[in-house]
Every structure is written in structure tokens, then in C-alpha cells.
Design a protein around this nucleic acid. Structure first.
Length: 393
DNA sequence: TCTGGGGTCCTAGGACCC
DNA sequence: TCTGGGGTCCTAGGACCC
């Protein structure tokens, strides 16, 4: 059987776990910026009870927050990654959960070599309690015949208090569970696919699972059909992923809007340098550098423009100056005057491992000196903090 | 007159996820 | 005043090959 573990209101739980004085208080985690912008990313149950919701811009709820002494915590992704790492290690210490993998910063999957519902529940409880003892993070557990059904089970574990945060969904209860579930709540059904299904009169998980394969084939790609199979109890999703990331991105929504190319270039240079350093941290090289730009889509009164451009590198590299230079070139491709820009970012792609690196015929001995320089710069920044040393123009 | 057919590889963009 | 920041996979279609 497949086990799914989902941390409850993860970012908010991490803040409470690491700041005990926040216990029992309404807390929201937001990506607040210097202008007081930002949106709510996570909230404790106490904050939810006040009517606050994930995704709301802070400026719309300042009053509510002030009135109820809601604590606003700045989002801290580094901390959250560390805590999920601790959870990973803790669960891997014991030997009942197998194939334990991290799916996202706050979700995990594994398998349990058991079939008895009472036993399954018992071991899920052990894992849940152990995670609580180790990290003080509350989690919900779902268990069923496939990854997708395990997530359905977790959905019920979260929504029915009586389950105590654990739901074992056995085959005999599958139809009942799916019959009560809107297709929008199913993993793998997004906005587009939901509309397609509504259009053919399919609204519940059960109606979807009972649909004809031939009909679905016309509407969906393999991903949609995998979801369909999983809901019928046939495991069809493979979660194993390559050790390294296939793309690395850094972007920002600015506090301001600007039409100044020089100013954008400053940000793009920083993003590109940071991406390059992440790239080296996973011992990889990339062959493509892309830049995207966007105006403020919330300002319907202003002219809108968004575009992206790429630079293909002659050979794979993790060299900061080369990557920065390429990003600036890509920016020049897409920048248009007469618009007020609000968001920009850099994406590195076509990533491969450094070892198997294809040296091109014309690579310079200079490259080796560059690589040494990068290694030293990275080591200094790791030891003394990011941005201790940077690359000049 | 009649104007191939079958591949592979790459990329951008769309769908999904948290 | 003020509206996030990352990722993955799949597919269609163009470029290119013989």
C-alpha cells in the first residue's frame, strides 16, 4: 500500500515549531517586501478562523490583521528545506516505511508492506508521532492502493476530525470516497482538465474513474490517463527523479515598476549569478540561459507586454561571467521601451553533469582558470555568507 | 503527366504540481 | 501604495536528415 504524508499548513507550522511563543496564536507567513506588498502563503488554524486565506495580498487585510494581533512572519525557505530534511532522515531511520521519497518541501511518499487496515493505521500513527516528536510539525497521512488514491485519503484525513489525521482508504471504500470528491480536488486535475471534464458531464472522482478510456484518450495526454488508472487502483505514476534539477530559475516581482533597462539589467545580472552558483552547487553545467520580463498584469490601465528570450551557449558551462553575459544578451533581445516592468527572471536549462561535460574544440585553457576561480568564490560565500564576494562587470 | 516518405531531434509552450 | 517563486513532464510542430 502507498503512504502519503502531508505537513499541515507547513510554512506556518515551521514558524510555530521554531518559535514556541507563537503557539496558539494566529500566525501568517507572507513574502512581505519593503513596500508592504506580498501575499499570504500559509496560515495557522487560528489565522484561518479569522477569515484570512492563502493567496490574499496583505494590503487587503491589514485591518483584520491589526485588529486581531495576527503575527506576520517573513517566509524563510531555507528553514523549511532544513526541517523537511530532518523529517526525511527521521522516517528513513525506521524500517517499516519503504521507498520513502520527498515529493515537495512538505510532502512525502512511501510504501508499507502490509494489507491489514488496522496495522496500516498503527504504523502510520507511529510515523506521524515520530515526526511530531522530532520536529513538532503536525502531519496528515493517507494510505491506499496508488499514489493518487493515497492523496485522496490524505484529503479525508485533513477534512474529518474523527480520523485523527490518518485515513486508510481500502479498496472496498474506494468508490464511496471518490463519489464524494469533486474532480478539482484530485491530484493531476488542474483548471483546464477540470473544465474539459465538466463539459462532458463528469464532476466527481467516481464519475471520472468510471469513464471510458477511449473517451478520455481523446481529451487527455498520458498524464491524465495515468491519473485515471491510479484512481481505479492501478499504480501508474513513477516518482523517481534524476538527482539533479533540470532547470534552475530565479525571478522576482519588484516592489516598483520600471522602464529603465539599466535597472533591470542589474537585477538580471544578480539572478544569473545566483543561478550559476546553484548550478555549481549541484555539480552541473547548462547550455541555455533564458530571461523573461513582464509588466504588471494587475494594472489593466497600463500597456501590457511579456516575453522571454534565450541564448544557446556554444558549450555547457557553469561559468558565472559567461552566464551573466548571456543573460544580459537575452535581456536585450526581449526588452522593449515604453513599458513599465514589474517582474523579471532568469532560467538555466539543458542541464547536464559536470563530469561528462562535452568540451568543445575551441575551449580555452582560460576555462580551467575560470573554474578554479568559481570554486574559490563559492567556497568563500559558503563559509562567510552569500554575497561575500561577487563578480564585477 | 508525374513532384516521396520516413525518420530523429529540438524547442517553445502548455499543462500540471507545491 | 501594495497581488509569489519556484519546479516537472508532455506534446506539437519545425528543422533537419537520408
Amino acid at each position: 500500500m502507498f503512504l502519503h504524508i502531508d505537513c499541515n499548513t507547513y510554512f506556518a507550522s515551521c514558524e510555530v515549531a521554531t518559535n514556541p511563543e507563537l503557539e496558539g496564536k494566529p500566525v501568517v507567513v507572507a513574502n512581505d517586501n519593503e513596500n508592504g506588498g506580498g501575499i499570504i502563503l500559509a496560515l495557522t488554524p487560528e489565522a484561518k478562523a479569522l477569515g484570512l486565506k492563502r493567496g490574499i495580498p496583505l494590503f487587503k487585510v491589514r485591518n483584520l490583521i491589526k485588529l486581531n494581533n495576527v503575527v506576520i512572519r517573513q517566509v524563510d525557505h531555507k528553514k523549511y528545506r532544513q526541517i523537511s530534511h530532518t523529517i526525511m532522515n527521521a522516517v528513513r531511520q525506521q524500517d517499516i516505511v519503504q521507498d520513502f521519497v520527498q515529493y515537495s518541501v512538505d510532502e512525502f511518499f512511501g510504501t508499507l508492506p502490509l494489507t491489514d487496515p488496522d496495522e496500516l493505521r498503527h504504523y502510520a500513527k507511529l510515523v506521524k508521532d515520530m515526526i511530531w516528536d522530532t520536529t513538532h510539525i503536525p502531519v496528515s497521512c493517507g494510505i491506499s492502493q496508488s499514489y493518487t488514491l493515497a492523496k485522496v485519503a490524505t484529503h479525508y484525513a485533513k477534512h474529518y476530525k474523527g480520523y485523527g489525521g490518518i485515513c486508510v482508504l481500502m479498496p472496498e471504500n474506494r468508490e464511496r470516497a471518490l463519489g464524494l470528491l469533486d474532480i478539482a480536488d484530485i491530484w493531476g486535475i488542474g483548471r483546464q482538465n477540470r473544465q474539459k471534464l465538466y463539459a462532458i458531464g463528469v464532476h466527481t472522482g467516481l464519475e471520472f474513474a468510471n469513464s471510458e478510456e477511449a473517451q478520455l484518450q481523446k481529451l487527455f495526454s498520458v498524464a491524465g490517463l495515468n491519473t485515471w488508472r491510479e484512481l481505479r487502483g492501478i499504480p501508474s505514476i513513477n516518482l523517481s527523479r534524476p538527482a539533479q534539477q533540470r532547470s534552475i530559475m530565479q525571478s522576482r516581482t519588484f516592489a516598483y515598476m520600471t522602464d529603465d533597462q539599466k535597472k533591470l539589467e542589474q537585477s538580471i545580472r544578480q539572478f544569473a549569478a545566483d543561478c550559476a552558483s546553484k548550478l555549481r552547487a549541484q555539480q552541473s553545467v547548462c547550455r541555455q540561459v533564458s530571461v523573461f520580463l513582464s509588466t504588471n498584469r494587475h494594472r489593466e490601465d497600463l500597456d501590457q507586454y511579456r516575453n522571454s528570450g534565450s541564448v544557446r551557449l556554444p558549450s555547457p558551462t557553469a561559468d558565472t561571467p559567461i552566464i551573466v553575459k548571456s543573460a544580459v544578451a537575452a535581456l536585450e533581445q526581449v526588452f522593449r521601451t515604453g513599458f513599465l516592468y514589474k517582474q523579471a527572471g532568469v532560467i538555466l536549462s539543458d542541464i547536464s553533469q559536470e563530469e561528462g561535460m562535452q568540451l568543445d574544440l575551441f575551449s580555452e585553457p582560460e576555462d580551467e582558470r575560470h573554474r578554479k576561480l568559481m570554486r574559490i568564490a563559492d567556497a568563500i560565500n559558503k563559509k562567510f555568507g552569500d554575497d561575500t564576494v561577487n563578480f564585477g562587470k
